[in-house]
């Protein structure tokens, strides 16, 4: 408990520090966006920090002037009101300068956006379908498909009046029964859609989210270089269990990935397996 408290304190202080513009160190403490694990997510992170710093700088100038004035131009210290109330010159200046600042933000933002949206020339494709309240993943090239839902432990702990302490559940609400498994070093294209209402597929470390719209397919892509497990959640209100449809993606080295694919296929070969029927239903 006391350890927890000191973490709190640390975070609160860091929050304050970030306010003052010293944000970069805050990343590890879950205060800030992270650079993530892809090119895109790194770009987005740096863009985020850039705009944040610019806003801080503007804040210092504007609030600085304001508080200076509050301090100096108080009636209680005998300030007399001046009577200027117009100046075309300054009006033009403070229209043009913000405009210039905005342009300097727009340039990197445009570049990042164009990169983010370019799902062309993928090495492989995965189709993601949202369901109330689980995800369905299909690998068309491999004939693998399966559902991925909240893991049983979290599901038990999250019930109203359950006696299970969420803190005792590993990756509470961020764990699934079947992970999406992908190879490192490949440009993976995602085809995202939904079977019922709108959902949104979001893994923060990949740097984006994309809505799953029934009747339409949205494309997105990623390329991860290092093996690892990344977690995310549905990010569009999709009904009562919107908070309980997490996403877990595991990136494996190519050889491990191939082994995983083989195992899945073997399992699917067994006609009684639920996975096989799902493949049939989906294709």
């Amino acid at each position: 408990m006391s350890h927890k408290k000191s973490v709190w304190l640390q975070r609160a202080l860091l929050g304050g520090a970030m306010l003052l513009g010293a944000g970069s160190a805050a990343a590890e403490y879950g205060l800030n966006m992270t650079p993530g694990v892809t090119n895109v997510s790194g770009e987005v992170y740096h863009l985020h920090m850039l705009i944040f710093y610019i806003c801080c700088a503007i804040a210092v100038v504007v609030f600085g002037a304001m508080f200076y004035s509050i301090w100096k131009h108080r009636k209680s210290v005998g300030a007399e009101a001046a009577n200027f109330h117009e100046s075309t010159t300054v009006e033009i200046i403070w229209t043009v300068i913000p405009f210039a600042i905005l342009i300097s933000m727009a340039i990197p933002a445009t570049k990042a956006l164009i990169n983010l949206e370019d799902a062309s020339d993928p090495d492989m494709t995965v189709k993601i379908t949202g369901y109330q309240w689980k995800w369905h993943y299909a690998y068309p090239e491999e004939q693998i498909a399966f559902f991925s839902s909240l893991d049983a432990k979290s599901n038990e702990a999250r019930q109203l009046g359950s006696s299970v302490d969420p803190a005792s559940v590993e990756d509470y609400l961020l764990n699934v029964d079947n992970r999406l498994v992908l190879p490192v070093g490949k440009k993976v294209r995602f085809l995202i859609t939904s079977n019922d209402v709108i959902h949104s597929w979001w893994v923060r470390d990949l740097g984006w989210k994309k809505d799953a719209i029934p009747g339409f397919i949205n494309e997105a892509w990623t390329r991860v270089e290092e093996p690892g497990v990344y977690r995310g959640q549905c990010a569009e209100l999709c009904g009562k269990d919107h908070g309980f449809m997490p996403i877990v993606v595991e990136f494996k080295a190519q050889a491990d990935y191939d082994a995983w694919v083989a195992a899945q296929k073997a399992q699917a070969g067994n006609s009684k397996s639920p996975v096989a029927t799902v493949v049939a239903a989906v294709n």
């Binding site: 189709k127 859609t193 009747g215 339409f216 397919i217 494309e219």
Partner: peptide, 9 residues
């Protein structure tokens, strides 16, 4: 940008 919408769905 919806070629796949048409083909898949």
């Amino acid at each position: 940008n919806n070629m796949m919408t048409n083909l898949e769905l």
